[in-house]
Design a protein around this nucleic acid. Structure first.
Lengths: 227, 227
DNA sequence: CCTTGAATAAGACACCCGACTTAGCTGGTC
DNA sequence: GACCAGCTAAGTCGGGTGTCTTATTCAAGG
């Protein structure tokens, strides 16, 4: 039998604390292993067996037992990072006021992720994982749904709309998509360079965020060539 | 025995025109099938057997016969599109002069691809294929090597360097990478939307190019926040 | 002490894959 | 006409994978 999605099984009263704790530990181990393997090799070529083995599980179907489907596994990885990122964004939003510039608002878009990546230390895999999930045709929908579910993200978008020049609806949508792509793939590229020991454009995640904010500000403020 | 990479086998004098032509036809069929399957499902989950079957080949190892390795298959797909794109870029470069603006040079970066995609008609898969190859860890190197081998690309970069404000070396590299990411993934996103019948930011590839050029110009002209 | 149920271990089964081998077909060469 | 080389068809084989089934461990409760 598989566990119902979402939380660990503690329905009724039968589940003991020790058991659920052990389960939670292996869940974490599986999530960590899966995130690493996905980032390194991509999603599809990594089998559930390999993930389980990398997580120290001898059971063939350990992954299937704790997470029903592949999609739920990905969602669980996203959720594990979403919480701290949301917390950072909420804190940054609280520091804004009516005198804040466009830079400050866009920084709320970028820095929660880069700070989180910096906090993860070296090596990290989350940025590359995000890039993989962003491309995988079957997972894009999960990505955007997960992003849309973020309450702080909505606040940032609202704030941006008031500061930005009036733009046609389709240009607004286009540049939003571009901003997302820049953030995800630039972070992934830097993380990859860090992992391989190659050269990086910026010495720190903080500097990377600054470069990204500059670029995205320019992207939004550039004039629209009429069709 | 496998064919040596590159062209079809016509060493010595034994190869007849009819045979090589038949071989070229199945090569084309395999390339077309592979490009479509890769774009739809990603690289790794698609097996050589499936590609061969989709190309109408009954042989298990048809792909392995015509293309030695997986990488060479990808390179062959890239090369098939590279030629017409190069041709377009060369023609655009010939139309530039000393009065050309930054917009015009950056258009030489974007429009050869978008025009090519428009020329492919509907449905096309090349943009999504590029995005997949850009992410696949094992294929990134092939991508950049292939791009660096383009002579017209070098001319564009040279032209841009003269028009752009003086930028620190690392910022220059960063924004170049961002430009590439924007082009590839924005085109992939539009192609995906076209394929799924969803809404698109722009009605045509031409308009998409204009939006991309605007964004990339803004990206390059935005001031650099000092560290 | 024995049972209960969750979590894991260990294995069985059918399936698909890549690599390899063999055979058949076709069109040119001598 | 015999021959040959390139291309394709068809099949074999070992290995990895997902799913399912059974056995084992372990803590809590009667």
């Amino acid at each position: 039998m598989t566990i119902e999605s979402g939380d660990t099984a503690q329905d009724g009263s039968a589940a003991s604390a020790a058991v659920t704790e052990r389960s939670a530990e292996t869940r974490e181990a599986i999530l960590t292993a899966a995130e690493r393997l996905f980032a390194e090799r991509g999603m599809s070529p990594v089998s559930n067996r390999q993930i389980g083995a990398a997580a120290g599980q001898a059971n063939n179907s350990a992954v299937g037992y704790h997470f029903g489907s592949r999609t739920e596994l990905v969602v669980a990885i996203l959720r594990r990072h979403a919480a701290p990122i949301e917390r950072r964004r909420a804190a940054m939003l609280a520091g804004l006021d009516t005198t804040s510039q466009l830079h400050d608002w866009i920084r709320c878009l970028v820095q929660p992720l880069t700070d989180h990546l910096a906090d993860l230390g070296h090596p990290s895999w989350y940025a590359r994982f995000l890039a993989q999930a962003d491309i995988e045709p079957a997972l894009r929908r999960v990505m955007v749904d997960n992003a849309a579910a973020s309450p702080t993200m909505g606040q940032v978008v609202d704030g941006l709309c008031q500061l930005l020049p009036a733009l046609p609806e389709h240009v607004h949508a286009e540049r939003g998509a571009m901003s997302r792509q820049l953030i995800v793939h630039t972070c992934a590229e830097r993380e990859r360079a860090l992992h391989e020991g190659g050269p990086t454009a910026h010495p720190t995640w903080q500097a990377t965020a600054t470069g990204l904010v500059d670029a995205i500000v320019g992207l939004w403020l550039t004039p629209v060539t009429p069709a």
